[in-house]
Each structure stands twice: as structure tokens, then as C-alpha cells.
Design a binder for these strands. Structure first.
Lengths: 250, 250
DNA sequence: ACAAAAGTGTTTTGGGTACACCCATGT
DNA sequence: ACATGGGTGTACCCAAAACACTTTTGT
């Protein structure tokens, strides 16, 4: 679960049996992406190229949200981005499901049983400087159904389920959008995450009722068509006007 | 986090840094209840009577669902009852928030840092034989706002939030009802959990659309008024007819 | 002028909500 | 006969969904 720290550091600083794994979703060019890291896994005279989500052990003095923030900073260079725990994965054999994976991870562990807390996160890809920050990592299409190490495919499924669930009940969509965005950008984002399409007029009627969606005196530039009005999200207004039963279903 | 096992057993069998705490909800006589255990906490020449949720460390060979099942069996005598993880609590100081609590728990721990996974559970109180099973425990009114040990008040708040959330999106209500129930019992249960009231006719119109709610050729007995028809939940029918967006909102 | 996306209203349908009386049973 | 909860229908309003054309800009 640990790639960036030596065994000695683990012994000194971390809890050997608890890790955090992060499913980092990003949005770009009408595609939902997810960050995976490449690992070279030598096994029986072969070398496998495999992929997994970034993860890390929990340090002795931090809570799991701090662990997740630390991982997100390392992977994306960003701080204060949205992240949320969604599920604990605790199968005693979760690291041993394939021999080569277990052989790869064993020397990095102090204990062969690691319970991991899954976090999902949303980042706006235009905020990420891919060239400098990310090595041995790629933004994969989230619907590509990659084979991942350990139980990470299962972790992905649960993360996507929870992302969709939460997106309908919390204003998460604004974590994925730039500060100023068009209504079409917002609509496309829902469409790509829920893998569907919405009627433009009905969609706009619905979002126009949201008092916390502020139309700006500003329009798109650099597009070869009628430029769209930009909007921003007013979190304060949202907190003031939200109701218990509110939902973001489109 | 551990009351029923000696320190030696912990050393042999369990993971010292990970526990499961269970918020067990039960329904009876129009009241939502929650199971708390009494602990006697001696501190500075006084003895405090305090309450907490039942919890236990995770054993080396079990996943956290098995840990939760084990706790539920110990506390209620019931097996195969609904339980669901809802959140991880990982504040490094969560056991040290009050001195007397920490002094009490310290000798029961191998490690002063324990991360706990919160589970909530739903039981039908008519299935529980309180007289024989539960010692040093009581079913408290869930809305009593008890002061609990450690971070257990926070755990309760999150459990109730998740219970309500899930109740609207999964057929959990049937875990709390007896096998055969009346529509009024079902309505009262929603009302007590959401602390509100619903119109009887509108409520019935809504549930009558649920194909998996089977009217039986059987009526209540022993009531001094018109006896109500009994219904049962057909889980197979539910699985067949449920849709992605289904919800149980009343 | 053309391409490309922005922006805008009406109609139909179904669900949510508010509301009051008679019925069947036990005591 | 009375008390108690069981059981039922209608009217209004609003939200969801289906559907097509004009506008503005860049090239």
C-alpha cells in the first residue's frame, strides 16, 4: 500500500495494519477519468506491469482524512480538494488474491493483514499540472474497466457508486467544475458521470431554480460560436437555502 | 473497546489498532431505541456509571462484517440480522477525550490508538429475549441524547443520519418490522425514525404501488377495534422490480 | 454563408398534498 | 352504545418529460 516511503519510515511513523486508498476522479474533455499508478511486479522470471490506486499507511499522529489529504497532495499537487471516505475493505486475504501482487507488496508491509479505508476524491483536471507532478501514473478513462491489483477493482466499483450517490445529494459537481462554468459544462459533467443524456431545456429549467447558482456578467471567450454565460456556485447561499430533503437529481 | 475477552485473548487473536462499534437500533411500542452498555469507571476515588456502544477488536482471521456479526450475536442473541458499516472514526485522541474514560480503557488495549469502524444495525425488539441475553445493557430512547463515552455520541449522530439516509433508498424498514405487519405499523415506524407524521391516505396510496408488499389473507387478532390486514415483504419481487432511482421516501 | 453551440415555451402526464367520513371489532 | 383504529376518494398544484426553432459568434 506504500510506494513512496522506506520500510524504516513505516516502522517509525505508521500503523502497520491500516491504510487509505484514494480513487481520484477527474473530469476533462467530456470524459470521466480516474488516477491509477503503474507498478512493475516481477514474478517467476517475468515482469508484470500492473495498476493500482495510490495508497498509504495511516501515520501514528494523523486521522484518516489527513492521510487522504497527504496522498492527494503527493499525487496531484493540490491541497484542500474534496475527499470523502466511502467504505472499509477488510477481507483478510485482500492482498493475497493474486500471488504476484502479494509477493510485490509483502516486502513493503510490516503485517500481512492490512485493512484499508477507501476515499474518493474529485479534482478539476485543469488545476492539475500533470507534467511535473505525476510520475508512473496516468488518468485512465473511468469506464475502461481496467484490471487492477488486489481488491482495487472492487474499490473502484464502490467509489463510483458512492460518487454517483453523493452527487445527487450534495453539491459535489462544483468540485469538478472550474470556478466559473457554463450550464452546458455542468450538464455534460452529469451526463458523463451518469452515462446518460438530459434534455437541455428541462435541465436549465431545473438548475435555474437553484438560488445558489449565480449568473455572472461574464461570457465565454475564444469559442467559435455564440459564447455562453458563465455561472459560479455560491456556497453560502447554498447553506442558507438548502433543505433536509434537497436533492440534485437531474 | 473490549469487554468480554481477556487481554491475553486480544494479544493472540485480534488486531490491536482496529475495532468495530455497533449502534443497534430497535423498535418497540412506537419508540426508536438504541442499545447501550453500562460501564463502571473508577477515577480519583469516585466511580462513574457511564454508557457506550458495544464494540470489539477485529480478529486476525475475520473481516469487519464478521466482527460486527459477532458483536450483534453477543448482545442480542440474534444471528443474520442486518448490519452495515457507515463510517470510520480515526481521531488519534478519540479515546483520550475524557481522562476517566481513557484510564478505564487503557488496561484493555495493546495500543493507545484505536481506529474504529462504526456499524449500525436494525433489530425487531420482539425477536430479542432481553431477560436472558443482555446484562449491563439497556435499550435507551434514541432521542434521549445520552452522554456517552469517548466519541460515541458522535458515532450515534452519524449512525442515525445514515440509518435515515439508507431507509429512504433500501428496503430496510422490513428489518425492523415483524414478518407480518400492518400498514399502520409500517407508517408509525417511518414516523418515529423521521420524527414526523404522514397522511394515512397518501401514505397508503404510495405503498400500494409497491408490488413487493404482499397483502395476506390474514388479519390482526386480539385488538379491540377493526382488525387490520397483514402484509409481508417479498424480497424476490423487490429485487426483480427495483429500479436504479428507486426511493422509499414517504 | 456556414458551422456550432446558446438560449428559450408550451403541452401533457403523473405524483404530491390536503382533506373527512363510514366501517368493523371488542368491551 | 361507545371507543378505537381501519379503511377509502377527490381536487388542486406542481414537477417531469417530450419536443423545435431562433440567436450569436467565429471562420
Amino acid at each position: 500500500m506504500e510506494e513512496n516511503t522506506s520500510n524504516l519510515d513505516i516502522a517509525i511513523e505508521t500503523i502497520p495494519t491500516i491504510s487509505v486508498d484514494c480513487v481520484i476522479f477527474g473530469y476533462d474533455a467530456n470524459e470521466l477519468k480516474v488516477l491509477v499508478r503503474r507498478e512493475t511486479v516481477p514474478y517467476e522470471d517475468k515482469v508484470y506491469l500492473e495498476w493500482k490506486f495510490p495508497g498509504n499507511h495511516v501515520r501514528k499522529d494523523e486521522d484518516i482524512d489527513a492521510t487522504a489529504s497527504r496522498i492527494l497532495k503527493e499525487q496531484t499537487g493540490l491541497e484542500n480538494i474534496f475527499a470523502k471516505q466511502f467504505m472499509v475493505f477488510s477481507d483478510p486475504n485482500r492482498l493475497k488474491r493474486r500471488k504476484q501482487d502479494y509477493e510485490w507488496v509483502k516486502p513493503r508491509l510490516q503485517d500481512d493483514r492490512v485493512i484499508t479505508v477507501g476515499f474518493y476524491s474529485l479534482v478539476n483536471l485543469s488545476d492539475v499540472d500533470n507534467s511535473t507532478i505525476i510520475e508512473d501514473a496516468k488518468w485512465a478513462n473511468a469506464y475502461e474497466n481496467m484490471v487492477l491489483m488486489f481488491d482495487h477493482s472492487e474499490i473502484f466499483d464502490e467509489a463510483l457508486k458512492k460518487l454517483r450517490y453523493d452527487l445527487l445529494h450534495e453539491p459535489l459537481v462544483f468540485e469538478l467544475l472550474p470556478e466559473k462554468f457554463t450550464l452546458t459544462q455542468m450538464q455534460k459533467l452529469y451526463e458523463v458521470i451518469f452515462n446518460t443524456t438530459y434534455d437541455k431545456r428541462n435541465y436549465r429549467r431545473k438548475v435555474n431554480k437553484m438560488a445558489y447558482l449565480i449568473p455572472l456578467d461574464e461570457i465565454q471567450t475564444g469559442v467559435s460560436h455564440k459564447p455562453a454565460r458563465l455561472y459560479s456556485f455560491d456556497r453560502e447561499m447554498y447553506e442558507k437555502t438548502r433543505t433536509e430533503r434537497f436533492d440534485f437529481r437531474m
